[in-house]
Every structure is written in C-alpha cells, then in structure tokens.
Amino acid sequence: MRHQLPASLAFPFLAAACLVASTALGQAPSPFDPDYTAPRTPDGQPDLQGVWSNAILTPLQRPPEFADKAFLTEEEALAYEARRNEETFRGTRDVDAVTDVAYAYNDFWWDWGSKIAPTRRTSLIIDPPDGRLPALTPEGQKRRDAREEHRRLHPADGPEDRLLRERCIVWSGNGDQGAGPPMLPSAYNNNFHLVQTADHVLIIKEMVHETRVVPLDGRPYLPDDVRQWLGNSRGHWEGDTLVVETQNFTDKTYFQGTSEHMQLTERFTRVADDILLYEFTVRDPVALTRPFTAQIPTVKLDGLIYEFACHEANRGMVGLLGGARAEERAAREAANE
C-alpha cells in the first residue's frame, strides 16, 4: 500500500515519464501550430491550393551516421545543412572541360533545397521507426534481382531498357529507385500544383507533367485488370486532411522495390499558410515485408509551373542508344583488326 500512488498523482508522473523518454530519444517538439486552421475554398473545403515545393535536404532514409537518432538538435541541424549545402552545391565550372561536360549539370540546375525538414527529422521515412526502407520479400527481391540482371545484360539495347525517367514516361526518384507517385524530391523541378474543385482535385507534378485528376465522389476504382502508369486515384477528406488512395499500377512501374500490387495512401494537410504536410504510406504485401510511411513538409512557392516537355526533344535517348551502338561498332572493329 505504501508504494501505491494515488491515481491523481499517477497521471502527472506518467506524463513526465513520457516527456523524459521522448527527450531521451531526441524528440523535437512539433514545429507546427496545432491551432492552425487552413483557409477555406468557396466550397468550404480546406484550401490546399497552390504550387508547393518538396525540395528538401532531408534524405529518404536515415543516414548511418544518425543510426539511433530520429531527430537532430538545432545545432546539429545547422551543421548538417551547412555540410550538405557545401557538398551539394559545389559548382563544376572550376574543373577541366572534360569533367565539366561529363557532369553536365551544375548548381544552376540543382534544386535539392537548402534546408532539412522543420521537424528536424533525420529521414523522410517516419515509419519503420529506424527511418529505413523495409526489407523486400523473397518475391520482391527476386524481381529486383531480375531487373538488375536485365540491366547488366541489356543496358541499352533499346529504349525499353532505360529508366522510365530517361524515356520521359514517369519520373523516378534519385538513382534507380523507381518512379512515383508518390512524389519524392529529386535533382530539380521539385514542384507540384494542386487545384481543387468541389468534386475533384488536380495534382500536376512538374517533372514529366505527371497529371492526376482525382475524383472525390467515392466512386469505385477502375476494374482490376485496367492498369495505368500513374495508377488510379480516389480521394476523400478526413477532417482537414485530403487523402488520396491509388492502386491499379502497372507491372512496369516500381517504387523502392514495389510491384503492381502497390497500394498508395497520400495525405495532404495544410499545417501553416506556407507549409503543406505531405505524407504517404506504401503497402505492397507481395514485394515489401511491411508498409512504410514518409513525411515531407512541402513549402509554398510564389510561382507557377511551366510546361515540361521531355519526350518531344529526347536527345538524351538518341545519344544513349546511339552511343551504345557506336561502342559496339568500335568493339567489332577492334576485334577484326
């Protein structure tokens, strides 16, 4: 009895214990005002409209250097930003001409952002708690291995062998991580334009002018055997959050190892006049051992999205395939000598 605390005292103790625990884990207080209410459209919906940038220095996965750390302190955040900005924005114009041309892009092009998320999280992935992508299932691994083997044997036999972004079909994230939706930042043009009407939402991602018209009327999905590059999206409101669910992806698209069974949930919440919190959860029971969720606070831009015409002058594809053929000719000629 002596050691038992009265109930009225237990709750504050528990709360204090939680506070200590979260501080020990480096939990930063939310930078967003919990009392913020988004402005309303003429239809009475929360107004999420505008051009938003998801350029951000926070990496998708938590870097090994922050293995046990979900959040940075303010000082650590400043140091990290300074280092990343130094690394990322080093121009290439001060090198010899060959290197300059080989790099092609310099900091005129790059748009990686210059700040990490205001939450000071060490990764965009907020679940699993380690901030890392979940493991692939054996089936998911088999598919990834097959893709890699194909690329090794047929790097540029034809356009189908190249990345979807090089073909101007859908944009992929950095490296060979596959294509969205969801919308991840990349090297440049990290912007999307969201337009709302009473019954639809239009989301235009600048890269490859990926355009989704999302009905909000609760209609069923397209039949299961109708597949689309950008999937088939349906939206609804949960309180002030716009939720967009997407499925019916093709088996030619993959995002961080997913398959055509990917089910995507995107959540858009305006948490400040200039911040639209974009969260997405990826589920794929065939390819992923568990779902994962990422969070990107996107920033309002005072600007417009201009036309992105990629396929219309895809000289990169001509150069890639033409270069591969030239290398094969040179190899044949060398063998004949």
Binding site: R167, R219, Q228, W229, M317, G322, A324
Partner: peptide, 24 residues
C-alpha cells in the same frame, strides 16, 4: 456514369517508330 479521364501516356507506343534505327 463514373466517366473519368483515363491515361493515354503514348510515349511507349511511339518508341519503336522513333528509335527503331538505334536498336541493337
């Protein structure tokens, strides 16, 4: 009923036409 703008991303349909001469 339920008419929607389905996807006609036609790039993949024209790659053979545009890049045939560059295939291995």
């Amino acid at each position: 009923e339920n008419v929607e703008l389905m996807e006609f991303k036609c790039v993949e349909f024209v790659e053979e036409k545009l890049y045939r001469h560059l295939r291995k």
